[in-house]
Amino acid sequence: MGFSADWLSLREPADMAARDATLLRQAAAAAGPDPVVLDLGCGTGATVRALGPHLPASAKWHLVDNDPDLLPHAAAAAGDGAQTHELDLQRLEDLPLEDVTIVTASALLDLASEDWVRALAARLDVPFYAALSYDGHMGWTPLDPEDAAVTDTFNADQQTDKGFGPAMGPEAGDRSAAAFEAAGFDVRTARSPWRLGPDAAALQAELVRGIAGAAGAGEWGQRRVAAAGNAECRVGHIDLLAIPGGGA
């Protein structure tokens, strides 16, 4: 599993606009008055930029990723006091959880297996905030006759192994919520769809290339890329906040 800094930068404005504002504020409150945040799969620091403005300036960050090229970008976003950790997220026992008050992730759970999420829930005794898990729903305007079939094929590919075992893919939101509820957490979820118009044509085109490659839909991809400057796209996501012990 790995993503380029260019792709992460391209998608970040859509991610920022899509995050559920209420759940984001609740996550910030759940982090407590002296937040120590552990961000899993931090990438270039998207969670830092989204959650950070809602936290005290004294907030501390532990930034975890398996890509050493991305960690300096995330550290720069977090500022003084941030610590980076180049770790394989499969090794949950290695997570630096001491003094952490909240664990976060962005666009991660749909790549993970249910077993991994269950193990993570068993490991945590602090709140967990995970935004932007793909939920399997895509809609395009104008329509193309192959849209539904391509979405189905892409969704099936999203459930193959992405580095954590068989991925939950479009079922990540529901299955992760159930896993944390079974571990005794109070779980809240909210929809956080991308809404991409012609002004996001570059993101639409790159998204389409990825979908077409995974679904083996080259001709569909060519048509969609060509239409990106005049098309609208909605891609569904789910945000999740899990608080241990049913706490507020």
Rank of each mutant, 00 (worst) to 15 (best):
D6F: 00
L8C: 10
D15S: 11
D15I: 08
R19N: 02
R19Y: 10
A27S: 11
A28N: 04
G32W: 02
P35H: 00
L38W: 00
G43K: 09
G45D: 04
A57R: 15
A59W: 02
D65S: 11
P68E: 13
P68C: 01
L71D: 09
H73Y: 15
A75E: 14
A76M: 11
A82H: 10
A82I: 11
Q83P: 00
D99I: 03
D99Y: 05
V103A: 13
L108H: 07
L109V: 09
A112N: 05
S113V: 00
V117K: 06
L120T: 10
A122H: 08
V126N: 08
L132K: 03
S133Y: 00
L143F: 06
D144C: 09
D144E: 14
P145I: 08
D147S: 03
A149P: 06
T153H: 03
N155Y: 08
A156C: 08
T160G: 13
A167D: 07
R175T: 06
A178K: 10
V187Y: 06
P193E: 04
L203V: 01
Q204R: 01
E206Q: 11
V208T: 15
A217Q: 06
R224D: 05
A228Q: 03
L240A: 08
L241K: 10
P244F: 08
A248I: 07
